[in-house]
Design a binder for these strands. Structure first.
Lengths: 143, 143
DNA sequence: ACAGAAATGTAGCCTCGGCTACATATCGGT
DNA sequence: ACCGATATGTAGCCGAGGCTACATTTCTGT
């Protein structure tokens, strides 16, 4: 990549393009997982709790939930909690599994627990299925 | 995290907040590294080349460069190429090292080369120094 | 039952990072 | 030296995701 950038342009561009796509999915995934967590813990997901846990103000959380609803991941009625659709639950499950796998791999290669948790939050959204599979295989080889 | 979300709120929120900060840095890092690549290869970085390699239109690249200039990472004169300041070069160097380390680690745990390159592009921006250090140590142990 | 507290909704503003359309400058070949 | 091709600049639009300020609804304790 260092020598002939011009010929690599399509490859490179595609790479960055994919990264941008992943970025736009990241928020959806984070909120979906968060809502799933809250429902498991308290039977419902309130806007206020979502906002507090995400570290944003409540109008921001409301907007995010609106987007989730638009994308068919969540449902809610005014002044009532937020719930996930089947689509949303599926995503939450996948995201949760991926998150765990990433954390486990980081721990396995010697990353300190706190850093592993922190970094996984950012990393997990950019890990492809191929990489995920490799992670799982690695963890099986050396537990 | 699955049981008592409410008490974990500050920790969680801080995590997401950090991730958001990293996100806003990611673009700066990508452009900086790209410009550095182009300068190494052709002695200068033209807006058109930057745009093509990043997979965006040229006005988008122009805007990004404007931001780089604002942040003191790059300099440029109208209709002339873009160059990095010392600050920018430093960042490029660090980013380049981190990128290589991430790719190497992915390869070491068995991720296929193409996936490693693709995913590293997204992952690298979210890897903390602690994690980076752990990666380096791991690679030393098993090369 | 009702008043104050807390939760939620809504409006409107900001920045960022995309884009298209159009204007201007530079470059290169004859 | 010129003219067409190419590169760059600029204006203005859009959606996403932050925010504050304010309105409304729900909840809660007396």
């Amino acid at each position: 990549m260092t020598q002939d950038n011009l010929d690599d342009a399509p490859v490179q561009a595609e790479r960055f393009s994919q990264t941008r796509t992943a970025q736009s999915q990241a928020l959806l995934e984070d909120y979906t997982e968060m809502i799933d967590d809250l429902i498991r813990a308290h039977g419902e997901a309130r806007i206020t709790d979502i906002a507090r846990l995400m570290g944003v103000t409540h109008p921001t959380a409301t907007k995010a939930v609106a987007r989730l609803k638009r994308e068919g991941l969540a449902v809610s009625r005014p002044y009532r909690g937020v719930f996930l659709t089947e689509l949303g639950s599926g995503m939450a499950e996948r995201v949760r599994g991926r998150h765990r796998l990433v954390v486990d791999l980081l721990l396995a290669v010697g990353v300190p627990p706190e850093a592993a948790e922190n970094d996984a939050e950012g990393i997990e959204h950019y890990v492809s299925d191929a990489t995920l599979t490799a992670f799982a295989a690695f963890l099986t080889r050396q537990p």
